[in-house]
């Protein structure tokens, strides 16, 4: 790949000092970016450049850089995690961009996810929804029954797994015009309600999680499906339908 030319780019980046002050877009230039670099490596180069000029680097969340921790969270050219399907920002590579292009980089925007600095937002609302019911009430004593005591239909197990792959990144919320968290919440509700171990407290779970979701200020779901399109893990809208059924069922006791 060494023969490929480096990219020269204009970056428009959201800068905001903290959760109180107003932010604005700033313009930066970066040059000679290898097309094999990841988007976040490009951000590292920008930051090194800012530090060398004695300016503050751009704050952004990231950790695993392989699409699994759910930390990275940039809104790039009007799309959560940028162009490309089923990837996170850290999996986006510069070969997706053209030399001379201008790239817009913003934080997630949602009432329930306040910006705390530059591209960093506070997603603790997701944790609170999980604390309200995203679990099976079993103690970690090790005195449970043998793992193979209850066979689970492979089809259900696979569906539960697919729902369980949600990385809690919040792209669904950021992409939704109502900032709804339905895809995220329904993924957990589905995973647990598809498994025999999770059925026991299915009613309380869905009620408690939905209640907390509403209290956090997430919007309503109006079925536009934008969340599914932008979700890096391909979490399906089917989960929302399943959660709605669970929720209805839980009312008719």
């Amino acid at each position: 790949m060494s023969a490929t030319e480096g990219l020269n780019l204009t970056l428009k980046v959201w800068r905001q000092k903290n959760d109180k002050e107003q932010g604005k877009m700033e313009t930066y230039q970066v040059s000679d970016i290898s097309p094999d670099s990841s988007f976040l490596e490009m951000m590292d180069i920008l930051n090194e450049q800012l530090i060398a000029e004695d300016n503050e680097p751009v704050a952004f969340d990231h950790d695993c850089r392989e699409g699994i921790c759910g930390s990275c969270s940039m809104y790039i050219n009007g799309e959560a995690h940028g162009p490309g399907r089923e990837i996170t920002t850290c999996q986006l590579h510069m070969r997706e961009f053209k030399d001379g292009e201008t790239i817009f980089i913003e934080p997630w925007r949602a009432k329930a996810f306040p910006v705390i600095k530059d591209l960093v937002v506070d997603r603790s609302a997701f944790d609170r929804v999980m604390n309200a019911g995203g679990f099976i009430s079993v103690n970690t004593s090790g005195n449970t029954q043998d793992a193979n005591a209850i066979p689970i239909d492979k089809h259900d197990a696979d569906k539960a797994f697919d729902a369980a792959t949600c990385i809690g990144c919040g792209a669904c919320v950021a992409s939704c015009k109502n900032a709804s968290a339905m895809l995220f919440v329904s993924a957990k509700v589905s995973q647990l309600s598809l498994l025999p171990q999770g059925k026991v407290e299915a009613k309380e779970r869905v009620q408690n999680m939905v209640k907390q979701m509403d209290e956090e200020g997430f919007g309503n779901c109006s079925n536009t499906g934008a969340c599914e399109v932008e979700c890096p893990k391909g979490i399906s809208l089917e989960n929302i339908a399943r959660m709605n059924r669970e929720y209805l069922k839980s009312g008719i006791s």
């Binding site: 679990f135 079993v138 449970t144 793992a147 539960a160 995973q191 498994l195 171990q197």
Partner: peptide
């Protein structure tokens, strides 16, 4: 055993 009881798929 523990993980299966917790819903690990």
């Amino acid at each position: 055993d523990q993980c299966v009881a917790q819903g690990v798929p």
